Simulated scan of single mutants.
Amino acid sequence: VLLSLVLYLERTSKPRIVTLAPDPRLPKHAFSSEPEVTQCPQLRFIRIDGSLFFGSVAHVERGFDLLRARHPTQKHLAVLADGINFVDLQGAQALADEAKRRQREGGDLYLINVKQGLWETLEACGCIEARGARNVFRGKEAAIHAIYQKLDKVVCATCDKRIFHECAAG
């Protein structure tokens, strides 16, 4: 039984963190995890596949730290949360802490496709308040539209990537 528990914790303590971006080669610019897909210089999308709990928080926080260190201009981070199977209070707090770090740096954290269990845990730990609830979206289109409004328009004006439909109109 102990060995089974150890193996379970080893497997679940390292959820996958996958970078995504709209792929112009796919219908409706569906999101892709292909490394050659161009990234927005200000906004990164990731998907977390697995549980956010006391046993995985250190791994996820290291992932957030690496993203901030490797991509300092991407101050905005959107997490596709439909891959998060379970979250406890420590996992919810890790998301709230990352949001605070990014806000201090002039960006923010956004959650997309949040399952009911994650929402309830975020509320229980006080991580969702009026401001935080505005950063939770049902889908990518609504998220992109809202987040685009918060991006630095000076950077957008000189950007030639045009990742999102909003970029062409901006």
Rank of each mutant, 00 (worst) to 15 (best):
I144W: 00
F86R: 06
A133T: 08
A92H: 02
F137Q: 03
L89Y: 07
P22A: 09
E10F: 03
A94T: 01
P24F: 04
I84Y: 13
E129G: 11
H165C: 04
A143T: 03
I48R: 00
R134I: 08
S56W: 00
V154T: 15
R16Y: 14
P22K: 01
E61C: 11
L109S: 01
G91F: 03
L111D: 02
G63V: 02
E123L: 10
A78F: 04
I128N: 02
E36L: 13
V136Y: 04
L118Y: 01
G139L: 09
V6D: 08
E34Q: 14
P24T: 01
V37L: 11
L9N: 05
T73Q: 06
L5R: 14
H165Y: 10
P41S: 07
V136I: 15
D65W: 05
K115M: 01
P24L: 01
V18G: 01
F54L: 13
F54C: 11
E61K: 02
I112K: 00
V1L: 15
Y8S: 02
T19M: 09
A78V: 08
K75C: 08
P41Q: 07
L20Y: 15
R138K: 09
G139N: 15
R70I: 00
V60Y: 05
H145D: 10
Q149Y: 01
D97A: 13
A96L: 09
E10C: 02
E98A: 14
V60K: 05
R131P: 13
V1K: 14
Q149I: 01
H145L: 06
L26G: 05
F54M: 15
R11Q: 05
K153P: 04
R70F: 00
P35H: 15
C125N: 05
